[in-house]
Design a protein around this nucleic acid. Sequence first.
DNA 1: CTGTTAGCGCGTTCAT
DNA 2: ATGAACGCGCTAACAG
Lengths: 346, 346
Amino acid sequence: MSPDAPASARGQPTIRDVAAAAGVSIGTVSRVAGGSARVAEQTRARVLSAMALVGYQPNAAARAMRTNKTKTIGFLMPDISNPVFSRVAVGAQSVLGPAGYTLFALSSNRSPVQEVEYLQAVRQRQMDGLIVTLADETASATTEELRRMRVPVVLLDRDVDIGADVVFSDHVIAMETIVSHLIALGHRRIGLVTASEKIRPGRERVRGFRGALAAAGLPVDDWLIRAARQSAEYGATETHDLLTGRDPPTAIIAAGSDIFYGAMKAVRLLRRDIPRELSFVGADDLLLSEVIGPPITVIDRDMVEVGREAGRLLLDRLNGVALPPRHIMLASSVVLRDSIAAPSHA
Amino acid sequence: MSPDAPASARGQPTIRDVAAAAGVSIGTVSRVAGGSARVAEQTRARVLSAMALVGYQPNAAARAMRTNKTKTIGFLMPDISNPVFSRVAVGAQSVLGPAGYTLFALSSNRSPVQEVEYLQAVRQRQMDGLIVTLADETASATTEELRRMRVPVVLLDRDVDIGADVVFSDHVIAMETIVSHLIALGHRRIGLVTASEKIRPGRERVRGFRGALAAAGLPVDDWLIRAARQSAEYGATETHDLLTGRDPPTAIIAAGSDIFYGAMKAVRLLRRDIPRELSFVGADDLLLSEVIGPPITVIDRDMVEVGREAGRLLLDRLNGVALPPRHIMLASSVVLRDSIAAPSHA
DNA sequence: CTGTTAGCGCGTTCAT
DNA sequence: ATGAACGCGCTAACAG
């Protein structure tokens, strides 16, 4: 009494099996499956039940071959285990999903080689669009590969000239705000630990940092600026180095979620009291900042919204919008908490 | 001087374009691309440079249609923005990638409907294998869909009888260890906030919890056991409720990373001093536990290793290993820190 | 409204 | 060692 589905390749039933079971031609089955042309109600019902009977699922590869559309979007990010990036996936999916697209998340693990491989995978699989956060803007192999893409691409917070739509996060204004605030509190030596200047966030944060000092007429001590990597280890070692130096800062800005973690750990190990002995500013991890004692002042961004915006931009392109490249700037917010105060020996 | 690639559909060059550029037949190009049969060294070189010239990437859909293999693996998880899940992707990718497979991460956002949709997407796209952490073991539509899968499936920490390989995390031993420890310190009323008993982790943690109390000859007060959801909000409200109840616990175990966050926040808001007024145990977030003051005792698991194991199991199946379903159990560790002490009013 | 047919790009025979 | 031809499952265009 089994459905007795011939089931061709891979054991999956095909459109032919359905046609045979329903006693119609494959064309009709295709029409029903695609919901396209008009089919007699009675026929449609027969086909539908035949599909259910044999457990039919359309073969995406065959469909893609015919239509040159896969209804899939790739999202390439440097590190899937970092919520700052993966939240973007949640946002993008929330707008792409209802439009009939499936989002596939890809994590390059910050490796340019992996990045290129994934970009090729996206091209090979004929994905209909791509959202990407590059691990390194200066890797030319990656940008070349990106340029080969023949589908809409949305870039996230990177300066790469490929004529793509971009969703930027503001870093300068937020940085200026917090640095000015610290200066107003009396701080003269402020340390900054952030990502490499090889990517926009690092560059922009350093720019905002220098700008705020300049605006206040303060000198810039390059020793206080650490912008090379993004990791908890980096945050820890640089913070340790800053705090144990000859002329340590009275305030530290750990701009980046990984760096925030590491810097915090270093501060704990050195038993510096926040904010009495040291003012501290974190970033990109609201939850962490809330449960630490004392609550930490942070620069925060809504990464889910970044994902939504990226999804919207992509959807427009997918729907044929032919405007010149659009740039969207999303604000960062500074959440003031108890971790900053006037420097003690002032 | 442009490569002048005809570039068929979607603007991507095909095997034909390469053949024309190299002055050979498509069969030869295919042989070179597949690295299969022997080709004259000189011919191979010509083809290779022609490929580079036109920027050829084999069309995955066409390949899949012929070979019934896609070299892709799906990883379905409840929430991509939770590192506990996304770390698994990192581990799985690290063993699947070198074997030539591309891992696509899919986040169901804890929605059974989304889960079914993604499972169908996996089937339609003829992915070669699947790693899955179910959001709800009791959703029959999901398990049915899972059963339809004709490719190897690896389940993560769930009890679903589909004859698949499974990677389990131990929850019972770790829970017994920490509860016994708290009891030894003098605690008699211990609160537990954890995931729903509809999924294995919730069930097992509750089981270990009850077991440890029973072993110590202590009564179980069901009011102290909260096992319904996984979210920061849930952790916060339940913790608040426990701490403000008539006969509050002297120790709380927040078993789950989201719950950990929320519970911690509730403790802060109620200004309970850890460990003087309250002993506190978190889970699944080592970084958070380190930077909070005081450092928090946690139950921890190596999720990257879970991913690696899952990848290995899958790879074996992909390579034709036909053993009966294998079950792997990975230990959890209890990291003792300063957040637990003898109850104060003891 | 429904059946028939021609490829989509590729890997794989089978000849040469 | 290489080329020609077939068909994987499907959609779209055309007949009827």
